[in-house]
Design a protein around this nucleic acid. Structure first.
Lengths: 230, 230
DNA sequence: GCTCGGTTATGATGATCATCATAGCGATCG
DNA sequence: CGATCGCTATGATGATCATCATAACCGAGC
């Protein structure tokens, strides 16, 4: 629960660009290592609703978000979608596939415009083999993601839709407001758009927030935290 | 979904003991490394319903299950419990906490009797710093756990109770039978005991399985897989 | 300008599932 | 041996939430 607020605090604003050497993964690298790495990177644009890769596609490597926002998600045959993680500048993704298998285990698409670097799998493997600190750093990151996933798993198994929505809202908020659509929030909270709208309207009537199109202003974050269950 | 059946196949039978050098983490170590590591290990008994550690407790280090079965779980204030992972001989746990923070992010308790080694945090850090291959290996393991967690997250968000129970049942089964109580299955599937019992009785009436106390024989695994949604 | 798609809403309806209650059964323990 | 506890079972009931339908609103694009 505390690491949620950590994520809130430490995630850089999605609108800001991050320098390569400040990205969560690469902080541990020396300037020389970084210099050798830089030419290997492929930069790709990130656009809202534009996929970076799809679940089942061949895994290219490790991604580092430079600017904008990206979400990882899974889609069912029925068309329902679950957002697994939402990432901001400096955060990495696709690490699972680079290590575990040949294919991406989830899809990724842009939420806010920006760009991302892609570090090819082979280069990553070389780097990992050459410097133990890098492996430990990636491990730290992936471990913290696993921890988050476990928390959400417990929440999905036990909490009501309002509780999950309140939590998703707090997670998405920056500076007292969350720039997300009801649909996006529903997919993060594992519910439907209609339920999300109804619940958020109730929050609004109770004075917990103020809603506009694609924007939710938190008026009583404390009460929302109570609803979220902690 | 395919890695689920992988887990089924590759997880050693909980009753069998595993040699230290065959544990998933330590396979990559040289005999010399292993010899240096061995005296650092503390062996602890694993007993059904006996906790190894609790969420929030100070993290000692990395655990390696030698024999028996262990589950990681989270409990709510309301008393409801979610099983996050179930582990067999040779598998590691507590890796998150050894890297991420000072406290365990979940609780662990025995399911089947056996024992586990505990590798102190400091020793692990030393090892990680000395040999890049070890870090990559832990990373591979943690990544695969994250992948599993993502799958379950999607399932919890989208699937019905019968679908989640069928999947939990398939995951728990070894050689066509699952030695679990209805309660344990419910906690793995994120539902209640009563619902688990009702659903499993329905499966039984439909000829998909045969139930006894603490034992479920799969009669039609194919049909169960269909119910599980894939 | 006018359609079209996405977002926000709200109602009606029904399925699903948690909760509470009760009970039989077997094992364990004093 | 009786009591107790955990597991399995089933019914009754109600809350929650998904689904389907409808509609207003707004911006983008033809």
């Amino acid at each position: 629960m505390t690491d949620r607020s950590d994520a809130e605090r430490t995630r850089p604003n999605a609108a800001n660009e991050i320098a390569l050497e400040r990205a969560e993964l690469l902080r541990v690298l020396s300037p020389e290592q970084l210099a050798r790495l830089r030419p290997q990177l492929r930069e790709r644009p990130v656009q809202p609703h534009r996929a970076l890769f799809f679940e089942g596609g061949e895994a290219e490597g490790l991604w580092i978000l430079r600017r904008g926002q990206v979400r990882l998600y899974k889609a069912s045959a029925s068309g329902r979608v679950t957002t697994l993680e939402t990432l901001g500048p400096g955060e990495i993704f696709g690490a699972i596939s680079a290590l575990e298998g040949e294919v991406y285990p989830a899809s990724a698409e842009g939420v806010l415009a920006g760009s991302a670097w892609c570090l090819p799998r082979s280069t990553l493997m070389q780097l990992l083999a050459s410097d133990p600190r890098l492996g430990v750093e990636v491990l730290r990151i992936v471990s913290s993601r696993l921890h988050q996933a476990h928390q959400r798993l417990h929440a999905f198994a036990q909490d009501s839709a309002p509780a999950r929505l309140a939590r998703a809202l707090l997670d998405a908020a920056q500076g007292g407001e969350a720039r997300v659509t009801r649909r996006a929030l529903a997919e993060s909270a594992g519910t439907t758009v209609e339920t999300a709208i109804r619940v958020l309207r109730r929050f609004e009537r109770e004075g917990l927030l103020h809603g506009q199109v694609g924007l939710l202003r938190l008026l009583d974050a404390e009460a929302l935290r109570r609803v979220a269950g902690g």
